[in-house]
């Protein structure tokens, strides 16, 4: 029971890192990427190969994954510079499919569908991160750090410039920023953060193969950001928590396991469509709406009382 909750929380924390990093590109940058699982995968493969052949140091793995993830991010940034909106969506889809093909076919490096097995536990300052508890602590701390970084970044001039890029590219030049440069940095930064999640995932499961980094996974990350509320600091983590914990709630219905996945995805699809029609700001938008209504209601109550 405890380990079950621990592993659920670890996956939630991973999802929070992924959703928050995707939010930089998708929510703030307005570049609708459906290829985020690629960077997650690059980070995971980097850490696994390092751990199997060189060193299982967590710090070293994260540093290396940031480099490889950032480079992969630059690859996606190339189309981001040339095409916009729906065309970029399609470019990122293409990027995801090509990356999946490479993960599957480059047996010598990725082990193909059989994957890389027997990844040893990570070590951090001489301690071995082996138990679920230790994984949970490390993953949660990193998730919190990512949230703090995203929040700080969005309050900085970088964040303002990024939002300007999304809403009105003309206005951006008046801020004295180069849109090309800004797009490159955002996509690369987002990819770096996602690859850190990949490192944690590889050490936690001690196994990686292409199935964890498919188009489906990218779509789930997009679902997290959209359902939570794109372009807000708290939306994507909320969405991530919802998408990871919802299946556990569904198991309450005692459905056969073969139906769980489809029921879950069917629900996400319907929620996404309804949200887009009625409240494109996601859960955060709904919460804001509830709060606004509260304030108005409190205001009315207050004025009634004053009148009485």
């Amino acid at each position: 029971m405890i380990s079950y909750l621990e592993s659920l929380l670890i996956f939630t924390a991973l999802a929070i890192i992924l959703a928050s990093s995707l939010n930089l590109v998708l929510g703030y940058g307005g570049m609708f990427s459906v290829a985020h699982a690629v960077f997650y995968g690059v980070g995971a493969y980097t850490a696994s190969l390092l751990a199997l052949h060189l060193s299982n140091s967590l710090v070293l793995s994260i540093l290396c994954a940031i480099i490889t993830g950032g480079l992969a991010g630059l690859l996606l940034a190339v189309p981001a510079l040339r095409v916009k909106e729906e065309y970029f969506v399609v470019a990122s889809l293409g990027f995801q499919i090509i990356a999946s093909t490479v993960f599957n076919q480059w047996d010598a490096v990725t082990g193909g569908i059989g994957g890389l097995t027997g990844i040893p536990p990570a070590s951090l300052f001489g301690y071995e991160i082996d138990s679920y508890g230790a994984h949970l602590v490390v993953t949660s701390l990193l998730a919190a750090a990512v949230l703090a970084i995203v929040a700080a970044l969005m309050r900085s001039s970088f964040g303002r410039a990024l939002r300007a890029l999304r809403d009105d590219e003309q206005a951006l030049s008046s801020l004295g920023r180069n849109p090309t440069h800004l797009r490159l940095v955002t996509v690369a930064l987002s990819a770096m953060i996602a690859s850190v999640a990949g490192v944690l995932y590889a050490y936690f499961t001690s196994f990686v193969n292409p199935e964890s980094f498919t188009l489906d996974e990218s779509v789930m990350m997009m679902v997290m950001v959209i359902i939570g509320g794109a372009g807000t600091v708290w939306g994507p983590p909320l969405g991530a928590a919802f998408v990871t914990i919802f299946p556990a709630l569904l198991s309450f219905l005692k459905l056969p396991s073969s139906l769980l996945g489809p029921v879950q995805r069917l629900t996400y699809g319907v929620i996404m469509t309804l949200l887009m029609i009625y409240e494109p700001a996601g859960i955060v938008g709904l919460l804001r709406w509830v709060r606004r209504r509260q304030i108005i209601l409190n205001g009315i109550n207050g004025s009634n009382r004053a009148a009485a």
Partner: peptide
């Protein structure tokens, strides 16, 4: 995104 949601559903 709404269309994507329809597709998934």
């Amino acid at each position: 995104v709404a269309s994507f949601g329809l597709f998934i559903a």
